[in-house]
Design a protein around this nucleic acid. Structure first.
Lengths: 204, 204
DNA sequence: GTCTATAACTCGATAGAC
DNA sequence: GTCTATCGAGTTATAGAC
């Protein structure tokens, strides 16, 4: 039986609770008091472990972005067939978002508030290989395997269909009259629905 | 030559500037001082016209949501052919978002922060006629005109492809290496690209 | 109706006891 | 390492002169 706490138990607890608070309220909306309450401690202790609110936020943000950006880049940069890439990107992103439903809106907000810092992190370890994927598409078009299509517009469609349902959940769930469990099921379905939808649209 | 100011010139000016500030910084990030500065007056005057920050924000939010929600509902509830509905929804939403690029993220944030109040406004004047559109789709499927498809998933796809490119602009523009003008052009293209893409995906 | 000045309050951060 | 107490900056909101 493991110990409930590890060496740096308190620091880990702070990070965990700070994560919950920042993800749901954002940097501006979150209060240090909220985090202290969630962790069952006082504000002073937060400052003992982290210099200030911004440092704590930065830490959370880096871990959050770092959690799924690399996987995406890896898939796109690989030598897989473009069909497989689409399938894997959808499967990978939607799985992550089902488990971390607050991440999409959180990331999108920070990205819009501080685009430069965000892009810096995005590009760390190499620019995403959009060109490779785009070149694959163009090759398929030339070979007559798929209809002529703008790679940029297609990439936008793929990302949109994967990400937005998590951001727009309140309206979607409401107008469709479904609960959380049913919504989760719909998202599971989308892992295969989106690739099928796209490939169908690309048929010559 | 008209007067620059109308009866309630000051109030209108406050609303206009408050709108700019709230849309870009959000409720939490915006400061009354920011609005006062933008309007070239002092904070006290803001409170003379509006009880408090929240009341001012509420006013802006209602006007913002009210600006495009009714148009959407009208299109969906109409007797147009489902193909035409898709075309008009895309054209209508994208046109609005091109002219008001900050609205999508702003609305999405408020919707997630206070879902109940948002949905209340959305449903004012009748629930959106999703069922009518869904029934149209099912009829087309039965007639063999389009492939079998979940109306809910399809609606999600349409909304996602229209809305998300405006929310995710910073990354998209960056990885595609294009400037604001080129991005705007891409959005113009999407007005027809999305409907074509969808109809292609629905071909039997 | 618009301004200046300031009260009242929130919140991040620090000092210092234990 | 964790707590209580408090400071000080920044913000909303109000009082009162013009």
């Amino acid at each position: 039986m493991k110990k409930a706490k590890r060496d740096t138990g308190t620091e880990a607890l702070i990070l965990q609770k700070a994560r919950e608070v920042f993800l749901t309220k954002g940097m501006d909306g979150a209060r240090m008091q909220d985090i202290a309450d969630a962790a069952g401690m006082n504000k002073a202790l937060l400052h003992y472990y982290f210099k200030n609110k911004e440092a704590l936020f930065e830490r959370i943000f880096n871990e959050t972005a770092g959690r799924f950006v690399p996987a995406m880049k890896e898939i796109l940069a690989s030598d897989l067939h473009f069909t497989t890439k689409i399938e894997q990107v959808c499967e990978s992103y939607i799985s992550m978002a089902i488990e971390n439903p607050y991440i999409p809106l959180f990331v999108v907000n920070e990205m819009n508030k501080r685009p430069t810092q965000f892009l810096e992190k995005l590009y760390r370890g190499g620019m995403p290989e959009m060109h490779k994927f785009a070149a694959q598409l163009d090759a398929e078009v030339d070979a007559g395997n798929i209809r002529a299509v703008s790679p940029a517009q297609l990439i936008m469609n793929i990302m949109s269909m994967c990400v937005f349902p998590f951001i727009g959940k309140p309206v979607f769930a409401s107008i469709m009259g479904i609960d959380d469990l049913q919504y989760r099921y719909m998202m599971e379905q989308r892992k295969t629905f989106i690739p099928q939808f796209i490939l169908q649209a690309l048929k010559p």
